[in-house]
Each structure stands twice: as structure tokens, then as C-alpha cells.
């Protein structure tokens, strides 16, 4: 029988919660954490590093589950900026919408947004996977280096600007591609990888009908003749 703990952030500070998550939780018998009344507070569950299920009930603020390792965190509400930023492993799921810079710099793990994500989603992605069931805002996957971003809905302007080796799959429309981003053919391996990701994210989607966006790699080397025109 696994143990669970409940924290009410109307009565307990985020610092107390996070100190418990960092210092007491690892190695204990607790496998489920429930957090009530997040009330838009920041940094809830940042720095988790053990296999635990965390449920946050309500709208949360910035940096939720940042730097996450191993844990599976679910927010039953919306989140502010930079959810799952710098995630290393595990899974973060947002049942509502996410504000800017969702999954920024994530090195590993899976971030799932059931609603829409705002601008700069997956900025500087470094190997993690980000799956958005709805739309993403402008400058998403900006300078993304490794990993995969899946947008089941529509993508805003300048998608994948200055992209490195991350790959983007888009199910809906793309307002515009950013500098050096280009649409590429969907190979059988893309369909397979996308199908696996959608399944892992628990989302429906016809993988064949997605488009692939990758880097044209023309910004990899300095071109003095480009006159800053890209």
C-alpha cells in the first residue's frame, strides 16, 4: 500500500512544500502528492528528483515542475510562464492552457499541454519532448537544439526560428516559419516516431496528416555575404 500526502498551499508555503519534496520525500514510502489551492503561485514542485505522482489542483504560476527529474506532475488547471523548464526526465502534464515559454530548455522527459500553449513554447529545447494538443503562439521552438515538439493544432508566426536539430510536427496551420526553418517531407520513421509520442501523451491524432519542420542549417556557419538578411 503506497502512501500519499496532501498539501494545502492556502495554509502551507511553496517553500515548505518544496523543501519537503527535496529533502524528505526521496526514499520515503510516499508515492502520491496532492497539492490544493495553488492560487497561481510560482515554482510549485520545482526541482523534484524521485519517482512520485504529483497532482496540482487549480491554476498555478510560473516555473511549475521546473528541472523535473523522474516525477510525473499533473496540473489540473492553467499554468503561467515556463512550465517544465529545464526538465531532465519524467512527465509534466497541464490539463488547461500554458502561458509563455512552456518546456523552455527541457533536456529530457515529456511535457504535455492539453489546451493551448502561448508564445515561445519549447524555446531552446535541448532534447525533451513537448506535445501540445491545441495551438502554440509565435516564436515557438525558437533556437530548439534537440528533441521533438508536436503541435496538434495551429502554430503562430515564426515557428522554429533559428532552429538547430530539434524536429517539429504540426497538425494544423502554420502562420509563418522563422528564419532557417523549412518544411520537410514526412518519412515513415517520422510517422512512427510521432505516433509513439502521441500515444505516450495519451492524445488522438492522425500522424500521417502532420507536417514536419526542420532546420535548413543555413545559419550554422557565418555568412559575411548575407548582410544580416535571412
Amino acid at each position: 500500500m503506497s502512501d500519499s500526502r496532501e498539501f494545502d498551499l492556502a495554509a502551507t508555503s511553496v517553500r515548505e512544500l518544496n523543501q519537503y519534496l527535496h529533502a524528505e520525500l526521496p526514499g520515503s514510502d510516499v508515492t502520491r502528492i496532492s497539492v490544493q489551492n495553488p492560487n497561481g503561485q510560482h515554482s510549485i514542485g520545482a526541482g523534484l528528483d524521485c519517482p512520485v505522482e504529483v497532482d496540482i489542483h487549480g491554476h498555478a504560476g510560473y516555473f511549475i515542475a521546473g528541472m523535473n527529474k523522474q516525477a510525473r506532475v499533473t496540473v489540473h488547471g492553467n499554468v503561467g510562464w515556463s512550465v517544465g523548464e529545464n526538465m531532465m526526465s519524467g512527465q509534466v502534464r497541464v490539463n488547461g492552457h500554458a502561458s509563455e515559454s512552456a518546456g523552455a530548455s527541457a533536456h529530457g522527459g515529456l511535457l504535455v499541454i492539453d489546451g493551448d500553449a502561448s508564445s515561445r513554447c519549447g524555446i531552446s529545447l535541448k532534447g525533451g519532448n513537448v506535445v501540445v494538443a491545441g495551438d502554440v503562439g509565435h516564436f515557438s521552438a525558437f533556437m530548439a537544439q534537440a528533441g521533438t515538439m508536436v503541435v496538434c493544432g495551429n502554430a503562430g508566426a515564426n515557428l522554429g526560428d533559428s532552429l538547430y536539430e530539434a524536429v517539429i510536427y504540426v497538425g494544423g496551420s502554420i502562420d509563418s516559419l522563422g528564419a532557417d526553418a523549412r518544411e520537410e517531407p514526412m518519412e515513415a520513421s517520422d510517422v512512427e516516431a510521432l505516433r509513439d509520442l502521441l500515444t505516450e501523451a495519451g492524445l488522438e491524432g492522425d500522424a500521417e496528416n502532420f507536417r514536419r519542420v526542420g532546420s535548413a542549417r543555413s545559419l550554422y556557419h557565418w555568412n559575411a555575404e548575407a548582410h544580416q538578411e535571412y
Binding site: N39, G40, Q41, H42, G58, H59, G61, Y62, N78, G80
Partner: peptide, 16 residues
């Protein structure tokens, strides 16, 4: 930020 609005009556059911 949302936390500035979190105390408002009925905000849990608001269109946010």
C-alpha cells in the same frame, strides 16, 4: 499574473 486574481469571488469558474 493569475495570482493577483486568485482571491476574486468566482474566479475558479471564470473565463481565464
Amino acid at each position: 499574473e493569475f495570482r493577483a486574481l486568485a482571491h476574486l469571488p468566482g474566479v475558479a469558474d471564470a473565463h481565464v
